[in-house]
Nucleic acid binder design. Sequence first.
DNA 1: GTCTATATGATGATAGAC
DNA 2: GTCTATCATCATATAGAC
Lengths: 188, 188
Amino acid sequence: MLLESLRLFAHQGFPGTSTRQIAAAVGIKAPSLYEHFPSKQHILERLVLIGHRDLLAAFERTLAECEPDPVAQVRALVRTHVLTHVTYPLLAIVTNDELHHLAPERSAEALALRARAERLATEPGLRGARQGVFSPTELVATTAAIASMGVRAPYWFLPTPEQGPADLADSFAELAIRMLRPDRRSPG
Amino acid sequence: MLLESLRLFAHQGFPGTSTRQIAAAVGIKAPSLYEHFPSKQHILERLVLIGHRDLLAAFERTLAECEPDPVAQVRALVRTHVLTHVTYPLLAIVTNDELHHLAPERSAEALALRARAERLATEPGLRGARQGVFSPTELVATTAAIASMGVRAPYWFLPTPEQGPADLADSFAELAIRMLRPDRRSPG
DNA sequence: GTCTATATGATGATAGAC
DNA sequence: GTCTATCATCATATAGAC
């Protein structure tokens, strides 16, 4: 039922999905949904919490297992970010795009998780810049660019035998380092 | 009325916006809308066409005014892509996110424009890779990453006196080149 | 836990007066 | 071009039987 809702929310959006559609996908009638969730919004809230908890937990595991070098950390974090997004693309889409359809009191926890994840994931870039191993053109914009790669990936990426999720994650991790590192050839 | 619809579609999505809300924002009653557009979908169709036409036209102008060097072309195209997205952020959001709420016959023209724009914008990267001035880790993924920067920009970027749209466009153009160029320090 | 029946209101769109 | 009145349908959610 969470899975069916996820699929529908991802394809049609939260307001574009009716409780009848969810029920039909599960194989029951709409009123029976309210035996499991008190409202349609609560279903979305649950999904959005799962998505944010997954990402935060993945970031925490990544940093715990990684050597403290900023370059290694950024590589590992970008890999984790991309892998999380393309491994559960529908969850990533719903988590990112439909969160704002929740009433403030039901999105607050997810937003807090997001803020924590963001701090965790951006810290190594900051530290690397302070240490001089990174010299991005503009750190905030570069951080946003790196995050954007992963956030958009679920919308276009289809794994193939030649390029699986791990391959994309490796490629994007390499791109992140290229973005952050000074390039001797281009001035400024 | 297009502007009011744009604002509402961007913030609430197409299914989450009612004709009554649009009418109220314009200062009329809902039935009067149908004097100007035959349906709610036709309003979205118009917006989505404007968005896609703007981007394609901007790409065409950019290439017409640019020297044929791949590096210069990619820089100019990324600048244009980013500028278009952050100059009309609501239009970019609606054009990208709400297009799929149109019936196929009303999204076809926009999709055709998108395909043309995509070909135009990716060609210099391909040519540069063939010529050896670029050596991305993986060209398709890198192209997607570069596009992602611009597509996501309307969601977070707020111009300030220190960093206006042109500054962000310059930063992202530089990042695109860094992504595409070979980096002597990192093997592979 | 599921159903049928239903409450209550919103939805996109139309008819027809002015 | 705008309105009021309205249609037919859909929405989320509840009541109560089984």
